[in-house]
């Protein structure tokens, strides 16, 4: 029998809250990036984003359970989710792309319910398991501990963000994507097929989300009901940081995660949802474009 008495100083506690917050925040940031990519080109706020994350997690777990190695399972999951994202755009969003924004948002809500319903029929409501990517022993950082899988999540989020940044800056497709985001009409005139860019946006953000779902899976034990919560958090993160900048979404995600963890740690666990909303309202009241959001409409 052990006696639980630790010398955990106040600063160690704050450090631990911050570390927990950053790892939760990077999950929000991955979802937020998906919102950003789709919004920038199509002006659609895609509330099925969280369902893509759910699909990524559930498919990875299923492929893994049926005998594939973890890497292959995640790859398959990402491919299948990407295809679902593309079909979603092509069959649902594309035909009504000129509908008013609120109608498009409602449609994505509808699709999210359909995806969840089908997933529930396929998998039931039970949680599933994805193994840790690497060792399980936590890494000590000063007086606090970091779960190695959380490190995977944080690093993946940063790698994805940097990758997206380079893609938009330095590749022809990326530049075409950015052009469509800034002005669809002008991009059209320059010979860029903006509708293709819409398809690319859905593919890219579904793929990211699926990967995010797989990386966070070992910590969160994915089940079919996780999507809506992630959509709300990811969207909040994107709004706080700015829905049209990669840096903005990253900062928004981390800020939201850390604030929630500090609120739960220093005030009470019940207060964290309220704190997130208050921060969002505060940011929107003073900077409607988000903390880092640019004034120009569609920058990525």
């Amino acid at each position: 029998m052990g006696i639980g008495f630790w010398e955990l100083t106040f600063s160690d506690q704050i450090l631990q809250f911050t570390i927990s917050g950053i790892s939760t925040g990077s999950i929000y940031a991955i979802v937020g990036l998906g919102f950003m990519i789709i919004y920038s080109v199509t002006r659609v706020v895609n509330f099925a984003q969280g369902e893509f994350v759910m699909l990524g997690g559930m498919l990875s777990a299923s492929f893994y359970a049926s005998g594939f190695s973890l890497g292959v399972a995640i790859l398959f999951a990402a491919v299948v989710t990407t295809l679902i994202g593309m079909v979603f755009y092509q069959t649902v969003i594309y035909p009504i792309r000129r509908a008013p924004a609120f109608a498009l948002i409602l449609v994505t809500f509808g699709v999210s319910i359909i995806i969840r319903g089908i997933a529930m029929l396929a998998w039931g409501t039970e949680p599933t398991r994805i193994p840790y990517f690497s060792r399980a022993e936590p890494i000590p950082i000063a007086g606090a501990l970091l779960n190695p899988q959380s490190l995977w999540v944080i690093v993946s989020t940063i790698v994805i963000a940097v990758g997206l940044f380079l893609f938009f800056r330095y590749t022809v497709t990326g530049k075409a994507f950015m052009a469509s985001a800034i002005s669809a009409t002008l991009a059209d005139l320059m010979g860029i097929k903006t509708e293709r860019m819409g398809l690319l946006a859905f593919a890219l953000s579904a793929c990211l989300a699926a990967f995010g779902g797989a990386v966070m899976g070992p910590i969160t034990y994915p089940h079919v009901g996780i999507g809506l919560h992630l959509s709300v958090k990811g969207f909040t993160a994107a709004l706080i940081g700015g829905l049209n900048r990669i840096e903005g979404v990253m900062v928004g995600g981390f800020a939201l995660g850390v604030l929630e963890a500090l609120a739960a740690g220093l005030i009470s666990s019940g207060s964290k949802e309220a704190i997130a909303l208050i921060v969002l309202l505060g940011v929107l009241a003073f900077r409607h474009q988000g903390l880092l959001g640019g004034e120009e409409a569609g920058r990525v």
């Binding site: 809250f17 790892s23 910590i219 963890a261």
Partner: peptide
Amino acid sequence: WEEYGMGDTDLTVPLTKIKAVGFDAL
């Protein structure tokens, strides 16, 4: 006394607070 949400997947925050006090069983 600590509390956590029904859907929480990261319990390290309440656990950190718990860890900071002396106790024999959780």
